[in-house]
C-alpha cells in the first residue's frame, strides 16, 4: 500500500482516492464529477501526448489534465 498522486499512476493501475485538495472552481468541478475520497478509480489510458489522463470511476469514463490530477491522492497496491 502506498499513497501517490493520480498523475503518477500507471495505465491499468487501480486505487482508492484518499484525499482531494484544491479549492474554488477546479476543486468543485473535480468533486462534482465524483472524484471524492473513498471512490475506486482505475487509469484507463493516456492521451497521445500523455496528458490528459483517462480514468474509470463509478462505471463511467472521465478525463482530466495532469495538473488537475495532481490535486488527487490515491492509495494503490
Amino acid at each position: 500500500m502506498a499513497t501517490i498522486k493520480l498523475r503518477e499512476m500507471q495505465v491499468n493501475q487501480a486505487g482508492v482516492i484518499v484525499s482531494v485538495k484544491g479549492t474554488g472552481e477546479l476543486g468543485r468541478r473535480i468533486r462534482d464529477m465524483g472524484l471524492v475520497p473513498g471512490k475506486q478509480i482505475k487509469v484507463q489510458g493516456k492521451a497521445p501526448l500523455l496528458d490528459p489522463v483517462c480514468l474509470r470511476i463509478m462505471g463511467f469514463t472521465l478525463t482530466l489534465r495532469n495538473n488537475e490530477a495532481d490535486y488527487i491522492l490515491v492509495e494503490v497496491n
Binding site: I30, M33, C54, L62, T63, L64, E68
Partner: peptide, 12 residues
Amino acid sequence: GEATPFVMELPP
C-alpha cells in the same frame, strides 16, 4: 485567466 478546468466525461 486560469484555464477552465478540463475535467470532462467521455460518454459511451
